[in-house]
């Protein structure tokens, strides 16, 4: 009999704490599969951030550091600069990366830091009970925008991938989604590519993964996937925003 499905070696056996309908677990798995496929588990150092994925250090079966809120790109820089032949990745939410940690992510990208960033955008602060995130959509209700986010009060949601893609140091930036199996497959490919870029020494690679937070969105798991598809994907278009390998081919 052939095994067609098993736990990636790069995930521990620890049971994940994520809520039903949350896609953090899927994104962990995609990340672990990429590490397995590239055979780099024993030379990978991951950096967990602060948010619902704060326990990622218990789930990834590789060396891990847990960083302060927003600081994962700085911690990853500190690691990568002293161990340039290791593979270093961060795993960050949108509050972590696009709000408190904007300086760190922008400058890591600007420096062309040779690291891989998995950026999980669920348009909300999950861990602290559903407050507005910098990526919360206009009109979206959160515990701190109880009447819906307005431009007047809160300004516009940030499109981080587009913003970071303007920086010369960025080698690869892609936005993917997890709202159906086809898109999950594409997300897996993008994550693997983001690690490959690092192995090739090309510089900063980031994959923004649109993700659900059914509990804080107040939706069932199925409804959450549909809401993501119908509301997030239009505002956060999927695709490749920067790929230096493509630019090379075209040149």
């Amino acid at each position: 009999m052939m095994r067609v499905f098993e736990r990636p070696e790069s995930l521990t056996e620890k049971q994940m704490h994520y809520c039903p309908g949350c896609t953090h677990g899927i994104i962990h798995r995609l990340t672990a599969e990429a590490i397995d496929q590239l055979g780099i588990r024993e030379k990978t150092i991951g950096v967990a951030s602060v948010g619902c994925s704060v326990f990622a250090y218990d789930y990834f079966n590789c060396d891990m550091q847990q960083a302060a809120h927003g600081r994962a790109p700085a911690v990853a820089t500190g690691i990568k600069r002293v161990l340039p032949d290791r593979v270093v990745f961060t795993y960050q939410g949108d509050g972590d990366l696009a709000s408190i940690g904007t300086a760190e992510i922008v400058h890591a990208a600007a420096r062309g830091e040779n690291i891989t960033v998995i950026f999980v955008n669920n348009a909300i602060y999950g861990m602290t009970s559903g407050q507005m995130a910098p990526t919360t959509l206009l009109g979206q209700k959160t515990t701190t925008t109880p009447r819906g986010r307005t431009v007047h009060d809160n300004g516009y949601p940030i499109r981080m991938s587009e913003l970071l893609a303007t920086l010369d140091g960025a080698a690869y930036i892609e936005r993917v989604s997890t709202h159906d199996p086809k898109h999950v497959m594409q997300a897996g490919k993008a994550i693997k590519k983001a690690f490959t870029m690092q192995l090739e020494g090309r510089g900063f690679a980031l994959v923004e993964v649109l993700s659900t937070c059914s509990v804080n969105w107040g939706l069932s798991p199925q409804e959450a996937l549909e809401w993501m598809r119908d509301n997030m994907v239009p505002y956060y278009p999927l695709g490749v925003f920067k790929d230096v390998t493509r630019e090379e081919e075209q040149a």
């Binding site: 950096v47 302060a68 700085a74 911690v75 690691i79």
Partner: peptide
């Protein structure tokens, strides 16, 4: 920033 610098220190010290 100093915020980043000390977190880089954290990363390297951890190695």
């Amino acid at each position: 920033s100093e915020v980043s610098a000390i977190n880089m220190v954290y990363g390297a010290a951890g190695c």
